[in-house]
Design a protein around this nucleic acid. Structure first.
Length: 153
DNA sequence: CGAATGATCCGA
DNA sequence: CGGATCATTCGA
């Protein structure tokens, strides 16, 4: 299965109140503090999984949440919006917490290079789904304008 | 140990 | 806007 990533959000560490890493390293968030290029998958609301890409160097927390994608191959008769949203994206790929802390270059779960998206097609906005206490108003959500894989255009 | 709380989604 | 539904985390 393959899909094109069209929506992401950045989460930092101790400086970002919306980040799972805000209150320091815990067993669940350990991958966020590990080396970059690996996965961080967590379980929320008792029914959804979300996939992140760890981005900062070993010892520094930081990750990018994959919030939306367009199905490319291997999805049999799937709706175009079936990967629009972090929970839906993870479900479409059958991801669970078993898939946390995987090498995203060499494991079964990998991210490949893709054609550059022209800056004119990239939209920046505030992140979605944060409580008031955690909100930062920073434009750390990026998505491809007009894509059907975006959760909330 | 108990209680609160989500980086969500769907349906009314 | 409310409910589903449970692992994780924090406070006592």
């Amino acid at each position: 299965m393959a899909a094109r990533i069209v929506e992401v959000e950045a989460y930092l560490g101790r400086r970002d109140p919306a980040s799972h890493a805000y209150r320091g390293l815990t067993p669940r968030t350990a991958p966020m503090f590990g080396p970059p290029g690996r996965s961080y998958v967590y379980f929320v609301y008792g029914m959804y999984h979300c996939l992140n890409v760890v981005t900062e160097r070993d010892g520094v927390a930081g990750a990018v949440l994959l919030r939306g994608a367009e199905p490319l191959a291997g999805f049999d008769d799937i709706s175009p919006r079936a990967l629009a949203g972090p929970g839906k994206l993870a479900r479409a790929f059958g991801l669970t917490t078993q898939h946390t802390d995987l090498d995203l270059v060499r494991s079964i779960l990998s991210i490949r290079d893709a054609p550059v998206v022209p800056p004119s097609r990239v939209v920046r906005s505030a992140r979605i789904g944060l409580s008031e206490h955690a909100t930062t108003n920073k434009p750390w959500r990026l998505y491809v304008r007009g894509s059907s894989g975006v959760s909330r255009p």
